[in-house]
């Protein structure tokens, strides 16, 4: 109220800092992944036993692994795999889980109960077991890993959305919308979902990092993306036995996962702030 108009105008155009930092990191990761599609310093799958466990140098920027593969090239190519798996898995979770959660909140009673019991059933099976089951049907591979992780994500989002949406349904503005003759679908889309975007975005970034880790776990037991296709998760799993000899092999993919997740978290936070009209202007 008491802020001078010039200061207000200047601040209104300023984007949230978290959005800028998160956006930059995410853009950088995506750019690296994109570049790897057309160019990598070396062939990420080429095995040169003579060069095994070479330290970082001008030719091998991040050194080589125990098979003599170039780590930098594997990281770049692995980015495509890991990000694609995680993104699609989270997208499956959101695409199915969010409507289920909204429906459960909008129609308490048998629909709500059915969705909740379905959630419980899916929760009862660990992602790994689910992957084993899917592999038994369809054989191992990245796509099946995506499906397994995606199915595991559905109840996570469904439960979160149901719980937060239930709170929205008690609000007077939802009552006002009902008085305006709007049905549950329209109210869910117009009033409920926009007001619970913040927890959804935060949960999505958390699930994204978990999906990268889950993909790593599935690849480790041979159920995820198959060698020689590189993935950050499998690099991390492979490095486990080398941790005493060449800790670099674990650190590089580990840091990459952390930075990517951090970038996405910040991006999610920033987006949430940007979408909130209350924070759009300085107070």
């Amino acid at each position: 109220m008491s802020i001078a108009p010039t200061a207000g105008a200047a601040m209104r155009r300023r984007l949230p800092a978290s959005l800028l930092v998160g956006g930059t990191i995410t853009a950088a990761v995506v750019a690296v992944a994109a570049v790897s599609l057309v160019w990598t310093p070396h062939d990420p799958t080429a095995i040169v036993i003579a060069d095994r466990l070479a330290p970082p140098s001008a030719t091998h920027w991040l050194g080589t692994d125990h098979f003599g593969r170039d780590v930098a090239s594997m990281m770049m190519a692995g980015a495509v795999n890991s990000i694609a798996v995680a993104l699609v898995a989270v997208a499956i979770g959101i695409a199915v889980g969010v409507p289920l959660g909204l429906a459960a909140a909008a129609r308490p009673g048998w629909l709500d109960q059915t969705i909740l019991r379905f959630n419980d059933v899916v929760f009862a099976f660990p992602a790994l077991l689910l992957a084993v089951m899917i592999t038994a049907f369809a054989g191992p591979g990245a796509v099946n890993a995506i499906v397994a992780i995606g199915i595991f994500n559905i109840p996570v989002f469904a439960k979160l959305i149901r719980a937060t949406a239930l709170g929205q349904w008690t609000r007077d503005y939802v009552l006002a919308a009902r008085l305006a003759g709007k049905g549950p679908v329209l109210i869910s889309a117009e009033h409920v979902l926009p007001n619970i975007l913040n927890p959804l975005v935060v949960q999505a970034t958390i699930q994204f990092s978990l999906a990268i880790l889950a993909e790593a776990g599935l690849s480790y037991v041979g159920l995820g993306s198959q060698p020689p296709a590189p993935s950050w998760g499998r690099m991390l799993a492979d490095a486990q036995t080398m941790i005493a000899i060449a800790p670099r092999l674990a650190i590089v993919p580990g840091v990459a996962i952390i930075v990517t997740v951090l970038g996405l978290n910040l991006l999610g936070d920033g987006l949430a702030d940007l979408l909130d009209p209350k924070l759009r202007r300085p107070r």
């Binding site: 503005y173 009033h191 909130d276 009209p277 209350k278």
Partner: peptide, 8 residues
């Protein structure tokens, strides 16, 4: 305060 959707 509660009777208006803050996002619209």
């Amino acid at each position: 305060y509660g009777s208006f959707d803050p996002r619209r």
